[in-house]
């Protein structure tokens, strides 16, 4: 997003920027080598990622909501929003995830102001 969003100093919600990478993110429906990908494999890939993420994040406290942007457009692509029951769980997760890698890429994690995903729109 090109807008300058405020980052709260504490929040029950974390944003893990661009963490999910679809197997067909370069060209929809085909892999990096140009071979067609079965849509079921894309779905399985997503579910594996979701489970992997949930298992890790659940270590830091009870999760209220876990949302993954699996869109292919640039806006918010691959962003993960995790809302914990308590702010302290989010703070613990932020501390533990900072500086780590996921699938060979650094994890970029910040607090997010979003607390209600039904109302979450870019303003």
């Amino acid at each position: 997003c090109s807008r300058l969003h405020t980052k709260p100093s504490v929040s029950p919600t974390l944003l893990l920027s661009n963490m999910y990478q679809r197997p067909d993110m370069i060209t929809p429906g085909v892999d990096a080598q140009g071979n067609p990908i079965d849509p079921r494999k894309i779905q399985d890939h997503f579910e594996d990622f979701y489970e992997d993420l949930f298992e890790e994040l659940n270590k830091y406290g009870e999760i209220e909501s876990l949302n993954v942007c699996d869109n292919l457009a640039d806006h918010m692509v691959g962003n993960v929003y995790v809302q914990f029951r308590e702010e302290e769980y989010a703070a613990k997760a932020l501390k533990n995830l900072s500086g780590r890698y996921y699938a060979g890429r650094p994890i970029i994690v910040d607090f997010s102001p979003v607390t209600d995903f039904r109302e979450a729109t870019c303003r």
Partner: peptide, 9 residues
């Protein structure tokens, strides 16, 4: 499933 966490570059 193999976890992607802490998979180095």
């Amino acid at each position: 499933r193999v976890s992607g966490f802490d998979m180095a570059p």
